[in-house]
């Protein structure tokens, strides 16, 4: 009987091999754990480096004064003192440009998101959605180049905060569009239908029913979009250029925190300021992420 011989052979092999298989399984799991720890080690290393090297500079003047010039920095370094001045021009520039980008991107992004949600099956909407996805994948430096040709050359006739904002705006747009669409998809259709049943007009349903019920999702999407662009450097190099002073004129060159990091990186005398500025930028990005996580977790309660 063939089957009986197979049975005996199987039993023998299972018996003989199971020890080795358990060991192999353990070794495999061990590798997974080690590799996962390697994966997350950079975040620990980076944050600890930023904190250990940057905290000394995080004093009051760091937030209230503008960037020192190379000579001042060199003197301080030679005397072993903390570099004077701060990054106020970067803080205001980042806030200014992100604000303008948001003012453009939030309404447009939400409206296009609603359009996609309302026309999910229509061919044109599918094309818009695909283009949005393509826009999301465009390297930020290319967006910087575009903003240079459109805004720097034709609108502000020079490097400007507006040009920087425009590049950030194109970056934020697809993120907000897709998060709006996803958020609205998660709202039960019955809520919308209840609005229609009451005879409310279409725009009222969007404004008074859909947006309030998806508000936490929308805010999360906006915060994540902001956190994605707030650390962008490359497009700003081509558009906002940078500035040593606080500038609130959107037609003039403006600094931003990531631009300052780039300047400090290129200036040997300013090295000490790099870490504090990076630490500040990281705290900003992670803070935005944490807030959006908190909103998501509250919504799920």
């Amino acid at each position: 009987m063939k089957m009986i011989s197979i049975l005996k052979k199987t039993d023998a092999q299972v018996e003989r091999k199971w020890d080795a298989r358990f060991i192999k399984d353990k070794i495999f799991t061990g590798f997974i754990i080690i590799f996962s720890l390697i994966t997350i080690s950079p975040i620990v290393l980076i944050i600890s480096k930023l904190i250990s090297k940057g905290y000394k500079q995080l004093n009051w003047s760091f937030f209230t004064e503008t960037t020192p010039n190379t000579y001042q920095a060199m003197l301080a370094v030679n005397l072993g003192e903390i570099i004077p001045g701060g990054v106020l021009n970067g803080i205001t520039g980042t806030i200014l440009m992100v604000l303008i980008a948001s003012i453009m991107a939030i309404p447009i992004g939400i409206m296009v998101g609603i359009f996609l949600y309302e026309n999910q099956t229509k061919k044109y909407a599918v094309i818009v959605k695909d283009i949005t996805d393509i826009l999301q994948g465009v390297p930020s430096i290319v967006l910087g180049l575009i903003s240079y040709f459109w805004v720097v050359k034709y609108i502000t006739n020079g490097f400007s905060a507006l040009a920087g904002s425009f590049a950030l705006f194109i970056m934020m747009l697809p993120l907000i569009i897709r998060s709006t669409e996803e958020t609205f998809k998660m709202i039960p259709v019955s809520i919308k239908e209840a609005g229609f049943a009451l005879g409310a007009p279409y725009h009222k349903i969007i404004l008074k029913v859909m947006i309030p019920s998806g508000l936490s999702g929308l805010i999360t999407g906006i915060l994540l979009a902001i956190s994605r662009v707030v650390g962008e450097t490359a497009p700003l190099m081509l558009t906002a250029l940078g500035s040593m002073v606080v500038n609130l004129n959107i037609e003039k060159p403006t600094s931003a925190l990531p631009l300052l990091i780039w300047e400090f990186y290129n200036d040997p005398n300013m090295v000490d300021l790099i870490w504090a500025t990076s630490l500040l930028l990281m705290m900003l990005v992670l803070g935005l992420n944490l807030i959006s996580k908190y909103i998501i977790s509250k919504r799920n309660l």
């Binding site: 063939k2 089957m3 197979i6 052979k9 199987t10 092999q13 299972v14 091999k17 298989r21």
Partner: peptide, 20 residues
Amino acid sequence: GYNLNGISLNKTEKEEIIEK
């Protein structure tokens, strides 16, 4: 079951088990 447990079967054994 055999494959997951790394038990080697020759072709005729495989065919026999599958058919049966």
